[in-house]
């Protein structure tokens, strides 16, 4: 593959950003839900989405 470095870096940046952004949103939502006392009944579903993008 020519320009392999650039191409792989491009893929890495895009996927890392999307996954990181998604994880940050989920983490924030879970923290807020806990603060507000909403997450108890929701544990299985929220737990499932933990590794989500």
């Amino acid at each position: 593959m020519d320009h392999a470095g650039m191409i792989i870096a491009g893929y890495a940046i895009v996927f890392a950003t999307v996954l990181g952004y998604g994880a940050a949103i989920v983490a924030r939502g879970r923290r807020l839900a806990r603060e507000l006392g909403l997450a108890e009944g929701e544990e299985p579903q929220s737990g499932q989405s933990r590794e989500d993008p």
Binding site: I25, A33, L36, E42
Partner: peptide, 28 residues
Amino acid sequence: PVSPRTSARMATSSVGTTVLGWLAFVSL
């Protein structure tokens, strides 16, 4: 007290978005 507007649906995921999330993740 939990205000009346807050219900179980308020956490950040629901069945629909969990499925959607996994679909998106796998397709990525």
